[in-house]
């Protein structure tokens, strides 16, 4: 039991550090830290949602960036129409309200995930991976070709969304909002994986045939998990566009899907907290390597090499390593 106590203590320390971060950053006169950590936390939301299908469900989805990008585009397009007061397809008025745009983004992500999932889940394994990648690439090309929304270049979103009672344009306020949403996502994810639904998803990963044999319609469960993950990805995208005030097809690029997968596996799949660690590590590493003068732009070389080594010689990701360390400490 020393293990769980150590973990709780560690979690509490991290949480206090995250809560204190804006104050520390202001004190150190380095507010760029807030922006960096906000980015980490947003990627963490995307990675946690991917963990649901990738880690718990064992479905190798290589297209998570599609939902991330769709979430981002939903916010940006609603903003665009609110600004120009044109009504989209004669039906949908624009909006700049956070409480409207973000649920809308999640809705779009969920609906598209249902369509892509319904087709992709007819296959499994490597084919599933290739198909999710291909569909994500399809959306990438689609958004690259819509000139109204910036085509290849993307478009800027001049202002963050508004929320009654909160000034989201303040980076500190936005940071706390993102942190709260990540904690909410972690809590919801934990509830989900420990529920009957989560048990079924885990059972499907271990032996789908056996789950089907006891009378469970595995396709519907997998599809539901896929839709939930898609909504999580869209939430992260919506937050990122609010944070960066910019959207472009690059959000849907296949390397972004790859990065999300890396975050999950690097941090430790099927643990929820692992993907958070993975996101923090990967974003931090990219930022750190990017600051090296002259060679910084070639940081992907080092990241690629590290990735290969971690996959070859690492087991269970960062979280697995920490958990092993803690349990060993608990014994002695």
């Amino acid at each position: 039991m020393a293990e769980t106590r150590a973990l709780r203590a560690l979690g509490l320390i991290v949480l206090v550090a995250l809560l204190a971060l804006p104050a520390v950053a202001h004190f150190a006169k380095d507010p760029a830290w807030i922006s960096l950590v906000t980015r980490m936390l947003i990627y963490a939301i995307a990675a946690v949602s991917l963990d649901l299908i990738l880690g718990y469900g064992g479905l190798a989805c290589f297209g998570h960036a599609a939902f991330y990008g769709l979430g981002g585009y939903t916010v940006a397009i609603l903003f665009h129409h609110a600004r120009s007061s044109e009504v989209l397809w004669g039906l949908i008025p624009g909006s700049t309200q956070f409480l409207v745009t973000v649920p809308a983004a999640m809705l779009v992500g969920g609906v598209v995930a249902a369509a892509i999932g319904a087709l992709s889940l007819r296959t499994a394994g490597v084919q599933f991976l290739m198909i999710t990648l291909a569909f994500a690439q399809m959306l990438f090309f689609l958004f690259s070709s819509i000139a109204t929304y910036g085509g290849n270049d993307g478009m800027t979103v001049r202002r963050r969304n508004e929320m009654p009672g909160l000034d989201l344009r303040d980076d500190t306020v936005f940071y706390y909002l993102v942190l709260a949403l990540l904690l909410l996502a972690l809590w919801a994810g934990r509830r989900l994986v420990r529920s009957r639904f989560g048990m079924v998803i885990g059972g499907i990963r271990q032996n789908e045939r056996r789950m089907a044999a006891i009378g469970i319609d595995t396709y519907r469960y997998k599809l539901a998990a896929f839709v939930i993950a898609g909504m999580g990805g869209a939430l992260a995208g919506a937050l990122m566009v609010n944070h960066a005030r910019f959207v472009s097809p690059d959000m849907m690029h296949w390397t972004k899907s790859g990065e999300f997968m890396v975050m999950v596996i690097l941090g430790g799949a099927a643990s929820l907290i692992g993907p958070v660690l993975g996101a923090v590590t990967l974003v931090g590493l990219e930022d750190l390597l990017g600051q090296i003068p002259k060679w910084g732009e070639h940081r992907m070389f080092a990241i690629g090499a590290i990735l290969v080594l971690v996959v070859l010689f690492g087991k269970g990701g960062l979280w697995g390593w920490i958990a092993r360390r803690l349990s060993r400490g608990g014994d002695g």
Partner: peptide, 28 residues
Amino acid sequence: RRLYARDHLDQVLATFGLSLCVNEAFSI
């Protein structure tokens, strides 16, 4: 060679890493 016995996810990640590495090496 070290990945034949692993699951597809590990293979994907390692070869994804390789492709990042090779691409960046060529752009250098």
